[in-house]
C-alpha cells in the first residue's frame, strides 16, 4: 500500500458542532493533494490533524502505519516527520538563519548550517541570512517559513494557504519551490487553498471540502473538467454562494 496517510471515520467536534467528518481518505506518498473549499469547511482543522497538532474527536489517522487518535497521541519522532507552513508565519526574534536552523536545533542537529545556507539560497534569501527576521516583508517572511520547513526534509509538508495575501512575484516563487520539492525530493504535499487556480497549477489530486465533509476527491483534470458532484462544479466555476 502506498498511502502515507489513511483517515478512518475521523470526526472533529467542538461541543455539539461537527467541524470535520471524513469517512475515508488516503493521501498517497509523493503526491500533491490540494484541499479546496469555502472558509469554515474544515480545511485547516484537517491540516492540524495531519500534523498531529490536534487529535480527532473520534476515528483514527494513520501515518505510515502509526495510529493517531483521541486516546493515542503521536510520538514526537512521528510528529517530527511532518511540518506545516501556515498562512501567517510567526518567526522568532532572531536572525533569518537562526529561524531556518530552529527545527534542526530542536532535533539536536547542530551541524546543519550548510543545509540551512543552501535552503536559504533556494528560497532566494541568501543575502538576508544575518538580518533580524522581524525586518522582513510578508513575502520574505513566508519564504523563511518555507525554508525552515524544508530544512527538516519532512515526509509530508502541509501548506495552509501559504500564499494568501502575497504579491504575484512571491506567489510564483513559492509555487515554484513547492513544485520542485515534490518533483525532486518526492515530498508529499498537502496544500490547503481557497484559490482554485493554485490548486490546478500545483496539485495532482484535489479534495473538495464543504461543511466538514469530503464532497469529492479526484485527479486534477477530472476535478476541474468533469466533477462528479454538482457542488464541486459550482465551486470550481465560482458560482457557489456561501
Amino acid at each position: 500500500m502506498n498511502a502515507l496517510y489513511h483517515l478512518h471515520d475521523v470526526t472533529v467536534r467542538y461541543g455539539a458542532r461537527t467541524v470535520l467528518s471524513v469517512d475515508d481518505l488516503a493521501i498517497q506518498r509523493g503526491e500533491v493533494l490540494a484541499i479546496v473549499g469555502p472558509s469554515g469547511a474544515g480545511k485547516s482543522t484537517l491540516l492540524r490533524l495531519l500534523n498531529f497538532l490536534q487529535p480527532p474527536t473520534s476515528g483514527v489517522v494513520r501515518f505510515d502505519g502509526v495510529a493517531f487518535s483521541a486516546s493515542k497521541a503521536a510520538p514526537l519522532a512521528v510528529r517530527r516527520r511532518v511540518t506545516t507552513v501556515f498562512q501567517r508565519p510567526v518567526l522568532l526574534k532572531r536572525s533569518v538563519e537562526a529561524n531556518v536552523a530552529y527545527g534542526l536545533r530542536l532535533r539536536g542537529q547542530r551541524d546543519g548550517i550548510d543545509t540551512v545556507r543552501t535552503t536559504l539560497a533556494e528560497v532566494g534569501l541568501a543575502e538576508l541570512a544575518n538580518q533580524p527576521a522581524r525586518t522582513l516583508s510578508g513575502g520574505e517572511a513566508q519564504r523563511v517559513a518555507l525554508a525552515r520547513a524544508m530544512v527538516l526534509r519532512p515526509d509530508a509538508l502541509l501548506l495552509d494557504e501559504p500564499t494568501a495575501n502575497l504579491d504575484p512575484y512571491n506567489v510564483g516563487l513559492i509555487e515554484q519551490i513547492v513544485a520542485r520539492l515534490n518533483r525532486e525530493q518526492g515530498t508529499t504535499i498537502v496544500l490547503v487553498t481557497h484559490n482554485v487556480h493554485q490548486a490546478r497549477r500545483l496539485a495532482q489530486r484535489v479534495l473538495f471540502l464543504l461543511d466538514g465533509r469530503a464532497i469529492e476527491i479526484a485527479d486534477v483534470r477530472t476535478f476541474f473538467e468533469a466533477p462528479a458532484d454538482a457542488r464541486t462544479g459550482a465551486f470550481v466555476r465560482g458560482e457557489m454562494v456561501y
Binding site: L53, L76, V82, F86, V90, Y102, G103, L106, R107
Partner: peptide, 12 residues
C-alpha cells in the same frame, strides 16, 4: 500562534 508553529516544527 507561535506555540502551534513551534510544535509543528517538532518542538516538544
Amino acid at each position: 500562534a507561535l506555540r502551534m508553529q513551534m510544535q509543528s516544527l517538532g518542538a516538544s
